[in-house]
Nucleic acid binder design. Structure first.
Lengths: 115, 115
DNA sequence: TTACATATGTAGATAATCTATCTATAATGA
DNA sequence: TCATTATAGATAGATTATCTACATATGTAA
């Protein structure tokens, strides 16, 4: 009944794409940057993020490449493709429409004027 | 891959409670009013709305009563309880925090200044 | 040597919403 | 009169998103 599961609900992909628009990042870094920028409101679980990244790569919205962090450790960086940029644009526009519609309902207005 | 299932994702209950805060309504009316106020952005499916209303009643967030629309037809009106009003307040505050966090990420800022 | 941070990953559970279907009556139009 | 649409409420089952929990492995600090 709590109803507030993950808070993110639906916009996770948009936020990930947005971060990758600014610069290439690896998974762990995405989690930390998103937490920082949202002031800890969003802290993705690995079980949420990695499957999403794999799905994005599978759909050619991002491409990945490996880079060595130190001798033994390898980081998997993700880069936004132009297809991914287009999806991001669409998702941002959807978000704005959604946000505005919620606000209209919460502001209790009439929807349209009765003349 | 569409990712945009219902658009509502998570805030349906808040929007229903908000409408009921203004006046008592029956299910069908909630669907129409929400569609009107959101300029058709949100048009709840009956399979979404009625289970939510039953859940709200079960949790004492709303109470229902029957009223005759005409000789044969009965409408089931829902009334927001004080418990429901409190939940609405909390959900509105959660929504604002969420919305602001998303906007912070989309505006591409730093989250906080490095001094 | 214990613990924590870094780093990636999968399996299974849960919750929210949707699709699809069902039952009825009233009103409208052909 | 017959078909369609609007009104009104409801449930079963599917889908999807995200979570919890686990698994693996290295580097670093206490």
């Amino acid at each position: 009944m709590t109803t507030e599961k993950g808070l993110l609900s639906g916009n996770t992909t948009m936020l990930i794409l947005k971060l990758l628009e600014e610069k290439d990042m690896y998974g762990y870094q995405i989690i930390e940057e998103l937490a920082k920028k949202s002031d800890e409101t969003f802290r993705l679980k690995t079980g949420t993020l990695y499957p999403i990244l794999h799905g994005l790569e599978n759909d050619d919205l991002v491409i990945s490449y490996d880079e060595n962090a130190d001798k033994a450790r390898v980081r998997k960086y993700y880069h936004l493709t132009s297809k991914g940029k287009n999806l991001l644009k669409k998702k941002q526009s959807d978000w704005n429409a959604y946000k505005n519609a919620v606000n209209r309902v919460l502001e209790g207005g009439m929807g349209y004027a009765i003349v």
